[in-house]
C-alpha cells in the first residue's frame, strides 16, 4: 500500500508536468487547429533559459525561494517571447494554407529549435542547479514526498488556477474563447485575432517553460532533445482529454503520468515489463480514441453536409 501511494505521488508529479505542457498544445489547437510540434521544444527552451538565468544571476550558489521565483518567472517570460516570435515569423504566414503545410512548418520549427540548441549548447546533458533545499517528508506511513515534488504540485495548481482565471474572467480570455469558437466571426465582431493568437502562444509557452524549470528541479539533467518525447506524451495527454478542452488536458496529463509510473511499478505482475513505459501513453490514447473519438472530455461534432 505504501509503495502504491509512493508510485501514485511520483506518477502525479510527472503527470502535472505533462498537464502543464498539454495546456499549451490544447489552447493552440483550440484556436488554430494546429498541432504545434515545436511546443515540446519550448519546454526544453524554458529549462535552458532557467539554467542560464540561475548561473548568471548566481542563484546556483545559495538556494533561496526568491532565486527560484526569479528563475521561474524569467524562464516563463523568455519562453513566452520565443513562442510569440515563432508564431509571428513561422506560423502566421502559413496560417491560411492547408493543414499539411502548417503541420510541416511546425515540424520544421521543432527541428530548427532542437538543432540550434544542439549547436549552441552541444548535445551533452547539463546539470541544472538545485535552487531550493531538497528535503524528503514522510506521509501516509512510509511514502515520501520531496520538496521539489511539493513545488511541482503547488506551482502547477497555481498556474492552472491562474489560467482558468485568465480564460473565464478576463476580457482577453473572452476573446480567446470567441476565437476558438469561430475565428472569422470573432474578427467580424472586432476582436484583434492576431493579438489573441499571439497571446495564446505566449501563455502556452510560459506554461511549458514553467514545466521545464520544475522538471529540472526534480530531475536536474537537461539536454537539447529532452522536449521530444515529453512533448509527444503531453500532446497525447491533450488528445486523450479531448483536444481544445482545458480541464481535459489536465486530466489527460495526470492520467498518463500515473499510468506510466504504475506500469513501471506493477506492470510485471500482469506481464507488462517496465520497458513498455513509453508505449503506455500511446496504448491508452488508442483505446480511448477508438471508444470515444473526441477524447475523454471532448464533445463530438456532427459532420454536416
Amino acid at each position: 500500500m505504501d509503495t502504491f501511494v509512493q508510485q501514485l505521488i511520483n506518477g502525479l508529479t510527472i503527470g502535472s508536468i505533462y498537464a502543464l505542457i498539454a495546456l499549451g498544445y490544447t489552447m493552440v489547437y483550440g484556436i488554430l487547429r494546429l498541432i504545434n510540434f515545436a511546443h515540446g521544444d519550448i519546454y526544453m527552451v524554458g529549462a535552458y533559459a532557467g539554467y542560464l538565468l540561475a548561473i548568471y544571476l548566481g542563484f546556483d550558489a545559495n538556494p533561496s525561494i526568491f532565486g527560484f521565483i526569479v528563475v521561474l518567472l524569467g524562464a516563463m517570460l523568455v519562453a513566452a517571447l520565443i513562442g510569440m516570435a515563432i508564431e509571428r515569423f513561422a506560423y502566421r504566414p502559413v496560417r491560411k494554407f492547408s493543414r499539411m503545410t502548417t503541420l510541416i512548418t511546425a515540424i520544421g520549427m521543432s527541428l530548427f529549435i532542437e538543432y540550434l540548441f544542439v549547436f549552441i549548447f552541444s548535445g551533452t546533458p547539463r546539470s541544472f542547479p538545485q535552487l531550493l533545499q531538497n528535503d524528503n517528508y514522510t506521509i501516509f506511513g512510509n511514502a515520501t514526498i520531496s520538496t521539489s515534488q511539493i513545488l511541482i504540485f503547488a506551482v502547477s495548481i497555481l498556474l492552472m488556477v491562474a489560467l482558468q482565471y485568465i480564460i473565464f474572467r478576463t476580457k482577453i480570455g473572452k476573446a480567446m474563447r470567441a476565437v476558438s469558437f469561430n475565428l472569422n466571426s470573432a474578427k467580424l465582431m472586432g476582436v484583434n485575432t492576431d493579438f489573441v493568437i499571439a497571446f495564446t502562444f505566449a501563455l502556452g509557452s510560459a506554461l511549458a517553460a514553467a514545466g521545464g524549470v520544475l522538471t529540472a528541479q526534480y530531475n536536474p539533467k537537461i539536454e537539447p532533445l529532452m522536449g521530444i518525447i515529453t512533448g509527444l506524451k503531453a500532446f497525447v495527454a491533450a488528445v486523450l482529454g479531448g483536444i481544445g478542452n482545458i480541464p481535459g488536458a489536465v486530466l489527460g496529463g495526470l492520467l498518463i503520468g500515473a499510468a506510466e509510473t504504475l506500469v513501471v511499478g506493477y506492470g510485471s505482475y500482469i506481464g507488462i515489463p517496465s520497458t513498455y513505459r513509453d508505449a503506455v501513453a500511446f496504448a491508452i490514447l488508442i483505446l480511448v480514441l477508438l471508444i470515444r473519438p473526441a477524447g475523454l472530455l471532448g464533445t463530438n461534432v456532427q459532420e454536416k453536409v
Binding site: 489547437y29 487547429r33 498541432i35 493543414r99 509527444l232 500532446f235 497525447v236 488528445v239 483536444i243 515489463p273 520497458t275 513498455y276 513509453d278 508505449a279 500511446f282 496504448a283 490514447l285 488508442i286 480514441l289 477508438l290 473519438p293
Partner: peptide, 26 residues
Amino acid sequence: SLRLKGDYLAIVTLGFAEIIRIVILN
C-alpha cells in the same frame, strides 16, 4: 483507426508506430 479523421488519425497512426517500435525493442 481509419474510422478516425484528420489529426486524430494522424496521432493514432503515430501511436501505433511507436508501440510497434517499443514492442520490437522488447
